[in-house]
Structures are given as C-alpha cells and as structure tokens.
Simulated scan of single mutants.
Amino acid sequence: MQKPEKTQFKRKIHPKDRANCLSQFLFCWQLPIIIKYYKNDFTEENLYPNLAEHSSEGLGNELEEKWHEEEKSSKRPSLFRVLYGMFGRKYIAYGVLMLLLELATTFLTPLCLKQFLKYFDPQEKGITKQEACMIALAIVLLNLLRVLYTHRLYLEFTSLGIKVQIACSTLVYRKYLKLKKETCQKFTLGQMVNLLSNDVERFHDVFAFFHNCWIGPLKIVLGLYYLDVVLGKSAMVGFLILFLFIFIQAYTVRHMANQKLKVARKTDHRIRLMDDIICGIQVIKMYTWEKPFSKLVEISRK
C-alpha cells in the first residue's frame, strides 16, 4: 500500500518585494492579507516566504565573516563593533531622519495652530478666510505625516532589531554545534535555550526604542526654549511639574529593570533544573523521587 503523498504548494512572492515606494510608505501591500484574513479565507497556502533580507543563512554568514575579521584585527574583539559595521550606519540614518521629522511636526503644529487662532481674534485682521483654511489644512497634513512616518520608522527599527536577533541567534547556534564535549558539559541546554529565547530578544526591544532616549531630551530642551519665548516665565511652572514626573518615571524604570534581572536569573535556574531532571529521569524514577523533584519544580516556577 502506497503512502499518501504530502500536498505541496508553491508560495507566492512576498507582496512587499514587488510593492513600490508609495505602497510601502502607506502599507498598501498589506491590504490583500488583511482582506483575506477578514473573510476567514486565510490558509497555509496564503503564507508568504520570509523576506530575503531576513534570511538566517545570509545574516549568519555575514555576521560570522565579520566576526572572524574582528578577531584577526583586534586583540579584544567586540560584538558591538561588528553589529555597528553591519547595521549601525543605517540605524543612525533612520535616527537622524526621525529627529528632523519629529522637530518639524512637533514645533510647526503649534505655530500653525497659533496662526489659525488669530483668525478668530476680532483684533487680528491680517488673516483671510482662505489663509485660515490653508493653515487648518497644514495642521491636518502635519498630523497625518506624523502618523505615517512614525509607523514606517518603527517598522524599520523593528526590522533591524529582528535582523540582529536572527544573526546573533544563528551565530550562537552554529557555535554550540562546534563545541567540544568537555566544553558542552560546562553549559546546560537550558542555558542555551534561555540565551536564544530571552537574551537575544532584547536586541529587538533596544532597536525599536533607543532613538527615543536621545530625541526625547533634545525635544524637551527645545520645547522649553520655545515655551520661554512664547509664554515667558509662566511656562517654567508647567515644566517643573513635567520634570518631577520624569524623575518618578526614571525611578520606576530602574525598579522594573531590577525586577527583570531577577526574573532572568530565576528563569536560568528553572531551565537548568528542568534540564537536570530530564537528563536524570531514569534515576529519579528508579528511586521514586518524583514527588520531591516535582515539588522543586513547583517552587522554581512559583
């Protein structure tokens, strides 16, 4: 009796690869996917292959090659320098573009709003109705531009973070396959799994939000100067209240970072414990130690 052959299908080209600049900027290439999913007609055949730029083989080969070059050229090789050489320039260029767009939309919008409100002031007669409509249109377009570029840039930041995550994960996996047996005994499989599933994922978060760490304070300084010019010293009171909340938020973030560090350590301990139990499961069953070890697992998970 012949075995039934598996159904094979050829996946289509990813719609982002054939989308033009306008379609990518407005995310129009995603509409067919959303419509199919909305109609409950989305099956495995509708899945697209990964983008070529997200290929683990390509990114892993490039990172491995640059890492070998770094080892030859430097006595103290640095992963940061290697990642900067691969993704740093593009990431900085996106950051500068984000800064310019943020400054433009943040400061032009209140200026246009100030001019628009002058139209309703009986003492101001220099602004016509047509000019007021043009200013109102400019306010709408500035807010629309901010929505579009924010999502577009965050998509690019996330894409770069995913590339770094894929490249580092590939390098760690290849290194683990080449380790000697004596070296493997110093590390557990659980530590490797935790390194690939939790630690490498932090690159994704850093790339998505790092630019806000320096653009935010710069916007605050420029905004303070703008408020001082427009409103005078009375703006300082509102800024002091905002400054107080910044200190509270910084304390909260620091506390959250400490808690995440504790969680990471406990996760390492739990995965190491589970790995040891799985390796010695025959001995545990032979001596009927299931309940004591299940209690240990319960405590570590709790």
Score class of each variant (00 low, 15 high):
Tyr94His: 11
Tyr94Ser: 08
Tyr94Cys: 09
Gly95Asn: 05
Val96Asn: 01
Val96Thr: 10
Val96Asp: 04
Leu97Val: 13
Leu99Val: 05
Leu99Ser: 06
Leu99Met: 09
Leu100Ala: 12
Leu100Gly: 15
Glu102Met: 03
Leu103Pro: 04
Ala104Phe: 11
Thr105Ile: 05
Thr106Met: 08
Thr106Ser: 09
Thr106Lys: 15
Phe107Ser: 03
Phe107Met: 08
Leu108Pro: 06
Thr109Trp: 03
Thr109Tyr: 04
Pro110Val: 04
Leu111Asn: 09
Leu111Ile: 07
Cys112Lys: 07
Leu113His: 06
Leu113Trp: 04
Lys114Leu: 14
Phe116Tyr: 10
Phe116Gly: 09
Leu117Glu: 12
Tyr119Leu: 02
Asp121Met: 06
Asp121Arg: 09
Gln123Ile: 07
Gln123Trp: 08
Gln123Glu: 10
Glu124Thr: 14
Lys125Ile: 09
Ile127Met: 08
Thr128Glu: 01
Lys129Ser: 03
Ala132Val: 03
Ala132Cys: 06
Ala132Tyr: 02
Ala132Gly: 00
Ala132Trp: 01
Cys133Thr: 03
Cys133Lys: 13
Ile135Leu: 15
Ile135Lys: 05
Ala136Ile: 02
Ala136Asn: 01
Leu137Ser: 11
Ala138Val: 07
Ile139Met: 03
Ile139Glu: 00
Val140Asn: 12
Val140Arg: 05
Leu141Thr: 06
Leu141Glu: 07
Leu142Cys: 05
Leu142Asp: 07
Asn143Ile: 06
Asn143Trp: 14
Leu144Thr: 08
Leu145Phe: 08
Arg146Lys: 14
Arg146Gln: 13
Val147Asn: 11
Leu148Val: 15
Tyr149Cys: 00
Tyr149His: 10
Thr150Leu: 10
Arg152Gly: 03
Tyr154Cys: 00
Tyr154Val: 03
Tyr154Ser: 12
Glu156Arg: 15
Glu156Lys: 15
Phe157Arg: 07
Phe157Asn: 09
Thr158Pro: 00
Ser159Phe: 04
Leu160Arg: 04
Leu160Phe: 06
Ile162Gly: 01
Ile162His: 01
Lys163Thr: 00
Lys163Asp: 02
Lys163Asn: 04
Lys163Trp: 00
Val164Cys: 02
Ile166Cys: 07
Ala167Thr: 00
Ser169Trp: 00
Thr170Met: 09
Val172Trp: 11
Val172Gly: 11
Val172Arg: 14
Tyr173Gln: 12
Tyr176Trp: 12
Lys178Gly: 09
Lys180Phe: 12
Lys181Val: 14
Lys181Asn: 08
Glu182Ala: 14
Glu182Thr: 15
Thr183Gly: 02
Cys184Thr: 13
Cys184Ile: 08
Cys184Leu: 15
Phe187Ile: 13
Thr188Tyr: 06
Thr188Asp: 12
Gly190Gln: 08
Gly190Asp: 01
Gln191Glu: 15
Gln191Ala: 07
Gln191Thr: 07
Met192Pro: 04
Met192Phe: 14
Asn194Asp: 15
Leu195Asn: 13
Leu196Trp: 01
Ser197His: 05
Ser197Tyr: 07
Ser197Trp: 02
Asn198Gln: 02
Asn198Gly: 06
Asp199Ile: 05
Asp199Cys: 07
Glu201Pro: 00
Arg202Gln: 14
Phe203Leu: 09
Phe203Asn: 03
His204Cys: 08
His204Ile: 11
Asp205Asn: 14
Asp205Lys: 15
Asp205Pro: 06
Asp205Phe: 15
Asp205Leu: 15
Phe207Thr: 06
Phe209Asn: 15
Phe209Thr: 12
Phe210Glu: 05
